[in-house]
């Protein structure tokens, strides 16, 4: 009787531990999936979308910086590599970062590292062929997010920055 009871408690504990680790491990991927679903309303997959400055009323992502303009490219590499180009932007700071589906950073480059030149990269899965004259970023998941962050020192400078950032491009590599 006691053995049965201990066995049952051990079963409950084992199930609980499995569920705990599974829930924790799946949380980033799940939240990333939810956010990408919301962003898909602003722009289609494999295209650049440009958000207006963050406000308390816009709740697409948690903890947005109100000093940054965000542009996003939701990518899907199932049909092949993707090319992203960011032309220089008139701002004290900007950066392009690429996140995989598990929220890990696959690539990041800021304006200072770009040294006044455009940032041009190809996102590709392992095994996908990419022409030789472009920097390749290997991503571990089919889907993910490229995020362009641009410092807007004061709200009055947003219009000029908005014009510059719309030169950024995100499209399947032809």
């Amino acid at each position: 009787m006691l053995r049965q009871r201990i066995g049952w408690i051990a079963l409950v504990a084992g199930i609980a531990m499995f569920v705990y680790w599974g829930a924790v491990a799946m949380t980033p991927r799940t939240l990333m999936h939810l956010v990408m679903g919301r962003l898909e309303q602003n722009a289609p997959v494999n295209a650049m979308g440009h958000a207006s400055l963050s406000t308390a009323e816009r709740r697409v992502i948690v903890r947005p910086s109100p000093d940054l303009a965000y542009s996003t490219c939701l990518f899907d590499l199932t049909d092949g590599p993707l090319e992203i180009t960011v032309e220089p932007i008139g701002s004290p700071y900007w950066s392009l970062s690429v996140f995989d589906a598990n929220t890990d950073v696959a690539f990041v480059r800021n304006d200072r590292e770009a040294n006044g030149q455009p940032v041009r990269v190809a996102l590709a899965l392992e095994g996908q062929a990419v022409p030789g004259d472009i920097e390749v970023v290997r991503v571990s998941s089919d889907r993910g997010l490229a995020l362009l962050r641009i410092l807007v020192p004061e709200r009055g400078s947003f219009e000029a920055i908005d014009t510059d950032r719309r030169n950024a491009r995100c499209a399947l590599l032809s």
């Binding site: 924790v24 990333m32 992502i61 948690v62 950066s95 996140f99 929220t103 950073v105 997010l145």
Partner: peptide, 17 residues
């Protein structure tokens, strides 16, 4: 860790390195 990644995802998704 899985837990750190999950907490960041919940509290500040897409934080930079």
């Amino acid at each position: 860790t899985d837990r750190e990644r999950a907490i960041v995802a919940v509290r500040g998704l897409m934080a930079l390195t």
